[in-house]
């Protein structure tokens, strides 16, 4: 191979990807620029530089409220998703082949079905005349329909159900990478089942838990569809604010600044989560 081939061919092969990714970075840099441009009325963007958009965001409890609600909602939903996801993953891990194939099929169907469809399906279940309320009313457990739709509880239920598959897959993968004799060794040395679970299995699956939590937190923090469909405008999160500012008020500079804040906050959170999990993961 000549030197020309060595340097020329890879560049040629990477050129199309460079165009696509280059455009992506170009759009991000334009957004950074617009986020510090003055807003001169609907769809009117000025030429100069200003920090007004960021000041407007951080100076208002109204706008900060969207950010804090998103951070808080995503935090407790991720925690619940992690507990449920681990349970389901452990169940899959312990099941026989047939159950495992069945569960796998159901999870993959979830994974391949659009969020809009899955969120709409949850709406049909928890709505005022949905199956949940009708069966609880029918059984005489409640007297009035539960108000779940258009409340934070409803949004939380939706986020947990929609993001559960993301949590299960990495945990199952890390459960299956544990050699079976590790558990037997612990048992033969007299460890109880509970002790084996908490001191052997959970630490060894920490990489899977970490991967699941990072993906789910990022997804839930910036979710748009679930608060949109199940919150009905009453439980709007940060992504809903960005969209409304950009597409309804046509205030691109403010929306770009809010998007920048979202990007930085989610990047920082992922960084901190990874740092935390590196501390609690046992070294091998």
């Amino acid at each position: 191979m000549g030197i020309g081939q060595r340097l020329g061919w890879p560049l040629l092969f990477l050129l199309p990807a460079a165009i696509v990714i280059g455009f992506f970075f170009f759009t991000m840099s334009i957004m950074v620029r617009i986020s510090v441009a003055p807003n001169l009325g609907p769809a009117q963007i000025g030429d100069g530089f200003t920090s007004d958009n960021y000041i407007q965001f951080f100076g208002s409890t109204f706008y900060l409220g969207y950010l804090f609600r998103s951070l808080w909602l995503a935090a407790y939903c991720t925690l619940i998703t992690a507990v449920l996801g681990y349970t389901l993953a452990y169940f899959i891990h312990r099941s026989g082949r047939r159950t495992r194939v069945l569960v796998g099929a159901l999870l993959v169907i979830q994974f391949f079905t659009a969020y809009v469809i899955r969120t709409y399906a949850v709406m049909l279940v928890i709505g005022k005349t949905g199956i949940l309320n009708r069966s609880l009313l029918g059984a005489g457990i409640i007297e009035r329909p539960l108000a779940l739709l258009f409340t934070e509880t409803g949004v939380a239920i939706g986020m947990i159900l929609v993001s559960l598959p993301f949590m299960v897959f990495p945990i199952v993968a890390s459960l299956q990478s544990i050699p079976p004799n590790v558990e037997m060794a612990a048992a033969s040395l007299g460890a109880s089942n509970t002790r084996i679970f908490w001191t052997v299995i959970v630490p060894l699956t920490m990489p899977g838990i970490a991967a699941g939590i990072v993906v789910v937190y990022l997804f839930e923090l910036t979710s748009y569809i679930v608060p949109g469909v199940l919150g009905g405008g009453y439980v709007d999160m940060i992504a809903n604010l960005i969209y409304a500012k950009a597409m309804q008020s046509f205030d691109h500079p403010f929306a770009a600044a809010a998007a920048m804040v979202t990007l930085l906050v989610s990047g920082l959170t992922v960084y901190l989560l990874q740092k935390f999990f590196r501390l609690v993961t046992p070294r091998t």
Partner: peptide, 16 residues
């Protein structure tokens, strides 16, 4: 692009 939230990607494309 995987670590950038979808709403941010959409917003960046819109302003560009």
């Amino acid at each position: 692009p995987l670590i950038v939230p979808q709403v941010v990607v959409g917003m960046a494309f819109l302003v560009t």
